[in-house]
């Protein structure tokens, strides 16, 4: 089925829709490609609103329920909008032993932000993530693409000041 109508969505513009179409087109005959499609579409749109999930399910000719089932199963996928900066706090064992919990609670206190949420001004989204495998630098925080090592509770807020 060729899709011609793009649903209206405030966070997805025409340019994004055409990129999304390209992703679907490329993968529609590959079985098992739904995870790849969701990942690439999330990179384009920033998150996966329900309208986009429905659009993908039509494009891949899969029931909406299976696409939603996959999107809700994997922690990579988000169905709510993200902030301008994503703070990923590593919750691996080495980071935990070395005090990441304290750094996390500093962030939560300072920005009134719970794990998994976004600040009201959409400056930061806070995620507690699985081990990033950079245990040599523990405790580790990743902001956008920058990995920060040795993030102590007294240093963490200073680091975040760099991201406006």
């Amino acid at each position: 089925m060729i899709l011609t109508h793009h649903p209206d969505h405030p966070d997805i513009n025409d340019g994004m829709w055409s990129q999304i179409d390209a992703v679907i087109q490329k993968n529609r005959t590959i079985s098992g490609a739904v995870i790849t499609v969701l990942r690439e579409c999330q990179t384009i749109a920033g998150y996966l609103p329900v309208e986009l999930l429905d659009y993908i399910s039509q494009g891949l000719n899969l029931p909406s329920s299976s696409v939603y089932g996959v999107a809700s199963f994997y922690s990579l996928f988000s169905m709510v909008p993200k902030g301008r900066h994503t703070i990923k706090i590593c919750m691996g064992t080495a980071c935990y032993v070395k005090g990441i919990k304290e750094a996390l609670s500093r962030i939560e206190n300072e920005y009134q932000l719970k794990e998994g949420d976004t600040t009201e001004d959409r400056r930061f989204s806070l995620e507690a993530v699985r081990c990033l495998g950079a245990c040599g630098l523990a405790p580790v925080m990743v902001v956008d693409q920058d990995t920060h090592g040795d993030v102590s509770s007294d240093k963490v807020l200073e680091l975040l000041d760099m991201y406006s």
Binding site: T36, L38, R39, V70, F73, V129, R130
Partner: peptide, 25 residues
């Protein structure tokens, strides 16, 4: 290469295979 999407249980062999098939792992 098949990229996972963040689910610990996908390290289990049968779950990993379901995941490559594009299903819940």
């Amino acid at each position: 290469i098949y990229q996972g999407a963040g689910a610990f249980v996908c390290g289990e062999e049968t779950a990993l295979m379901r995941s490559i098939e594009g299903k819940r792992g």
